[in-house]
Amino acid sequence: MKKFGLAAAAVIAGVVLLANLGPMVGLAVSVAILYYVAKKFMKAETKGMKILWGVLGLIMMAASISNAPAIIGVAAAFVLYLIYKNWNKAKKTEMDNDPFVNFEREWAKLK
């Protein structure tokens, strides 16, 4: 039953990830351009160039903010990673946590 729940969650997270793939790419591109614009703004020497880079920076910041739903896609990718990591994880029983059972197992290894 656990595998069914994990599979259902993986399907839902995959659909959410695919639905937000466009905004994720848009966010990555706009943030990269915004970084480049900020570097150019700092290096600009004249006021006219600073104003130009500042206006372009504001436009790119608006584009980045408009792609904010991409954070949901990143969360879905993280959920998919957790599901992949926990897919074949064995269940620990209470016997594995019992210190006396572990002591007996270790004692048998020493002999």
Rank of each mutant, 00 (worst) to 15 (best):
M1P: 12
F4S: 14
F4H: 12
G5Q: 09
L6N: 04
L6W: 13
A7V: 04
V11E: 04
I12W: 06
G14D: 01
G14I: 03
V16R: 02
L17N: 11
L18H: 02
L18F: 14
L18P: 02
L18N: 04
A19F: 15
A19Y: 15
N20F: 13
N20L: 14
L21K: 08
L21C: 04
M24S: 15
G26H: 06
G26T: 00
L27G: 06
A28W: 09
A28C: 00
V29W: 01
S30I: 07
S30M: 07
S30E: 08
S30Q: 07
V31D: 10
V31Y: 04
A32Q: 05
A32G: 07
A32L: 09
I33N: 15
L34M: 08
K40E: 09
K40G: 03
F41Q: 11
M42N: 14
M42L: 15
A44N: 00
E45K: 15
K47T: 08
K50T: 02
W53C: 08
W53P: 01
G54F: 00
G54N: 02
V55A: 07
L56R: 04
L58R: 05
I59R: 01
I59T: 03
M60F: 09
A63H: 09
S64R: 00
S64I: 05
S66A: 15
S66L: 15
A68L: 07
P69W: 02
P69H: 07
A75W: 04
A75Q: 05
A76V: 01
A76T: 00
V79I: 08
V79A: 08
L80E: 12
L80W: 04
Y81M: 09
K85E: 03
N86G: 10
N86S: 08
W87I: 06
K89W: 10
A90W: 01
K91Y: 01
K92M: 15
K92E: 11
E94F: 08
E94N: 12
M95I: 12
D96E: 15
D96R: 01
D96P: 01
D98Q: 03
D98P: 03
P99V: 04
F100L: 13
F100Q: 08
V101D: 05
V101N: 09
N102T: 14
N102E: 11
F103E: 03
E104W: 11
R105C: 13
W107F: 14
K111W: 14
K111C: 11
